[in-house]
């Protein structure tokens, strides 16, 4: 199996401003006092990983362990401080609830905007549009502005748009935290379909049941370092024991 994602010795250091300096005067006073003004946080430390085509990988770990940072690095939203990442397939990413959605626009307009930003043509979106809405179960709300939507509805819309794209690699952060049982089940079904089609899926999840049932591989990250990497069953057992 060819490697779809290759992460070579990647570290990511964030500069956290001690006191957020957003204004000129603050920059100037900090300079005068000779302060650095920030502390460094190494969110991902020298990580090496390889994901093969068709794999479904779960990134697990406590809050603040660096899972989302790693996923954002793979998605190309963040750039590594050292090391390199190569991704050979077209990817679609879904991060958290808001998903850069425009409150004042309707569901229809948001689908077009979001898909365009994910890199899909208008023609593709038009073809997929009814499926996207149907899957999200929002047929009645197509022309309703997003500000009227509940958080569950937004998530459904964003999730549905992302998975209907023709990407080969899906990077998904915390989808199971919202949506009712019924929708979660649908998500799992669609994941199974994507797996059958040979797509690669990387997801961050705290739901160990889903990870166990559904992922072929689990990567446990602790304080920016890969602690374990392998079959989910054993790793989850140790992970749950520790926390």
């Amino acid at each position: 199996m060819p490697a779809v994602v290759q992460v070579n010795n990647v570290s990511k250091v964030f500069k956290l401003p001690l006191e957020r300096k957003q204004f000129f005067m603050q920059h100037i006073t900090a300079l005068l006092h000779g302060q650095l003004g920030y502390r460094k946080l190494e969110a991902v430390k020298n990580v090496g990983l390889e994901f093969s085509e068709g794999e479904t990988i779960a990134l697990i770990g406590a809050n603040g362990s660096g899972k989302t940072t790693l996923l954002k690095l793979i998605a190309g939203i963040l750039v590594p401080t050292t090391g390199s990442i190569s991704v050979i397939e077209k990817s679609a990413s879904l991060f958290g609830l808001g998903v850069g959605i425009q409150e004042e626009l309707t569901a229809r307009e948001n689908v077009f905007l979001y898909s365009a930003l994910l890199g899909f043509s208008r023609k593709q979106v038009k073809e997929q549009f009814s499926k996207i809405i149907e899957f999200a179960e929002l047929e009645e709300f197509v022309d309703v502005k997003l500000k009227q939507f509940s958080s569950g509805m937004r998530m459904r819309l964003a999730f549905s748009t992302a998975i209907h794209s023709d990407a080969e690699l899906f990077l998904i952060d915390e989808v199971f935290s919202v949506g009712d049982e019924h929708f979660q089940k649908k998500c799992l079904d669609v994941f199974k379909e994507l797996q059958k089609e040979g797509k690669t899926i990387v997801l961050v999840s705290h739901n160990m049941e889903h990870v166990k049932k559904f992922c072929g591989r689990a990567v446990w990250i602790e304080e920016g370092i890969i602690k374990r990497d392998g079959k989910p069953a054993g790793i989850i057992k140790d992970y749950v024991k520790q926390s």
Binding site: E109, A116, G119, R122
Partner: peptide, 18 residues
């Protein structure tokens, strides 16, 4: 290139509407 222009068009359109 086409997906690039599609992004540009969709953002511009959305802003104009907004």
């Amino acid at each position: 290139a086409s997906s690039y222009f599609n992004m540009l068009r969709e953002i511009t359109l959305a802003d104009f509407k907004l």
